[in-house]
């Protein structure tokens, strides 16, 4: 691989040059592997040897015993799960839609070829995207619970805030990669900036954006299932209630319900994305 790459680049390379390049590269790679190994050793020492209280964990059979508490399904819980499951599903749907709505200005500002005033709006949109993606959904939910109170609304806002980054980043890339010709055509017909966006850019990027949104929706189902941890309703709340009452088969039941919901989402997403393309 390396030999061909070097050969094709410059003709007057001598054999010793090639050998020197390769040994230099090998030395770098060797240093990298050693560094990675040292990091692994250091991390294992810190986490598994120093920080873990092996006496508390006990022997292997004791671990198996505590795992076996989780085996089983609490059938009495299933009727109570239907409402929260629907709630989780709805939080994911509405959150994704709201995320899409607040994405529109972010896409407009964040795509280099359509941003209205580059020095200000472009960095602004990029900062918003990074902010949204780097803060975990639990933290978003905490912020929104303190702003709008407990309940599904905080969950919806958290999901929307968290989806903004991914949708806006991928969609802005799609807008940057459009075909320029329709834009020029609309410009030549005397269309203003708004008309260019509506008739030349939007039809081109719509299928891509829809695909991204469906993908994000599928992830959001999974996310909305844990927002109950900070008081934002849904299946997460039932999960923590079962956990706190030490009803371990109930915990397994809730996890299976989440699994089924995610499965439905994944199948829907798979087929609808296929239909889009």
């Amino acid at each position: 691989m390396t030999v061909e790459a070097i050969d094709s680049k410059a003709a007057p390379l001598k054999l010793e040059d090639i050998v020197r390049n390769r040994t230099r590269k090998h030395r770098w790679h060797l240093a990298f592997y050693i560094l990675a190994l040292v990091l692994i050793g250091w991390s294992i020492k810190a986490t598994i040897i120093d920080d873990t209280d092996w006496e508390r964990i006990g022997t292997f059979s004791e671990i198996l015993k505590s795992v076996s508490q989780f085996i089983g399904i609490d059938f009495g819980l299933i009727p109570d799960l239907l409402g929260p499951t629907i709630e989780t599903f709805m939080i994911a749907c509405i959150g994704t839609l709201l995320g899409l709505v607040i994405c529109i200005p972010a896409i407009w500002f964040g795509a280099l070829n359509v941003t209205p005033f580059k020095p200000v709006t472009y960095p602004l949109a990029r900062i918003a995207m990074t902010l949204s993606r780097s803060i975990h959904e639990i933290v978003w939910a905490l912020i929104f619970v303190s702003a709008v109170g407990l309940g599904a609304f905080a969950g919806i806002l958290a999901i929307a805030a968290r989806s903004l980054g991914f949708i806006a980043k991928m969609s802005a890339e799609a807008v940057e990669n459009i075909d320029r010709k329709p834009v020029e055509a609309i410009r030549a017909m005397g269309g203003n900036n708004f008309q260019v966006m509506l008739y030349a850019i939007l039809p081109q990027v719509m299928p891509v954006i829809l695909g991204i949104v469906i993908f994000e929706w599928e992830i959001n189902i999974r996310r909305s299932a844990v927002l109950g941890l900070v008081g934002a309703g849904g299946l997460g709340l039932v999960f923590f209630r079962q956990m706190h009452t030490f009803n371990y088969p109930g915990v397994t039941t809730v996890i299976l319900a989440i699994f089924c919901l995610v499965l439905v989402g994944e199948i829907t997403s798979h087929y609808s994305r296929k239909a889009l393309i």
Binding site: A46, T47, I48, D51, T52, D53, R56, I57, I63, S66, V67, F70, I138, R222, R223, A225, V226, L229, F239, M243, V251, I255, I258, F259, V262, L263, E266
Partner: peptide, 26 residues
């Protein structure tokens, strides 16, 4: 699918229940 569908927080809670607090469950 199972590993994907269960959120990392739920995995963390389950492992904390089984193994106790600390970095190993994380």
């Amino acid at each position: 699918m199972l590993f994907r569908s269960v959120h990392e927080m739920i995995w963390a809670i389950l492992f904390v229940t089984i193994l106790g607090f600390g970095m190993l469950p994380g």
